[in-house]
Design a protein around this nucleic acid. Structure first.
Lengths: 151, 151
DNA sequence: TTCGTTGTAACCTGGATTGTTACAACGAAA
DNA sequence: TTTCGTTGTAACAATCCAGGTTACAACGAA
């Protein structure tokens, strides 16, 4: 029985994405009752505060939050209804352009090598669009609402 | 203007997948007119023959091809209509289980940390399903047909 | 036996992610 | 003005994985 070199672990979309969503939910939930610092978020996420700060920078750059440097504390600057999971996914640079990694420079002398890109690309793009389309449907407000009954 | 540490390149689904599809198309196209060796496939893909052999092992283990060790040459052992892009995607271990990497051990003391997993998982799973669903629709036979007019 | 090919080990390289410590800049409050 | 907590950010270290390479034993047919 032949076996591969696979050691088990494989590629996944960076956890920055789920951490960013977690972060936004924490800010949304607590911003009115307390100062939401990177250390506070870090303790909810269970990660290093610097990791959180780096994500806060990306969320700030995307225009979702403001962060009070010096004083401390993050706040949403956009209605949670207007922040989709896809927005967050883009903000934290989950994928740059294409989700699938196409092998480069297939041999143009070969009929398959010459056309593989054209033929495959359509399907891969469609697959990526389908995935991103689902992320575009859900907003931060939706997640908050879905979390309510669990509390 | 704050900026991130991102250097540009980000995670993508391994090129093993597109190489595997390319490989199957080459086998399908040439198996009746010549002996299709790892070296031949490698020259079409423009990759090292060992890379191709490792992928051939995975495709063989999945039951899509037979490889004549010693003599050399790969052949399809299944109708191209019955090999979907998703089958190939699974055969080469593109993702093991979940596409998204969820940060582990969120703080159960925090209401957000306690429920983030439950709430987010549904959306992430739906996104992944949508992507994989598209890959399930296209077969090797479809790709071959789409490539015909380009030749 | 010879010869081309496969199966597979061993190794290297580069890149990305995640985590860490450290510290200057900042803003508010004492 | 000084103090203090916090942010912004640099500089690293530790993994981990993909991708590539060389090397060689095993194989099967001629």
């Amino acid at each position: 029985m032949p076996h591969t070199r696979s050691t088990g672990r494989t590629m996944k979309i960076t956890s920055r994405f789920t951490i960013a969503v977690h972060t936004l939910l924490v800010i949304h939930s607590f911003q009115d009752s307390m100062k939401v610092t990177s250390a506070f978020i870090a303790s909810s996420v269970n990660a290093n505060p610097v990791i959180i700060r780096r994500i806060l920078l990306q969320l700030k750059a995307a225009g979702f939050i403001s962060v009070a440097s010096g004083t401390g504390g993050a706040r949403l600057t956009r209605d949670p209804k207007d922040i989709t999971l896809f927005d967050v996914y883009q903000a934290v640079d989950c994928v740059e352009g294409d989700l699938f990694h196409f092998h480069e420079n297939p041999n143009p002398q070969c009929p398959v090598g010459r056309n593989i890109h054209t033929v495959l690309d359509q399907h891969l793009q469609e697959a990526q669009n389908a995935m991103e389309g689902v992320l575009k449907k859900a907003t931060l407000a939706d997640l908050t609402a879905e979390m309510q009954p669990l509390l």
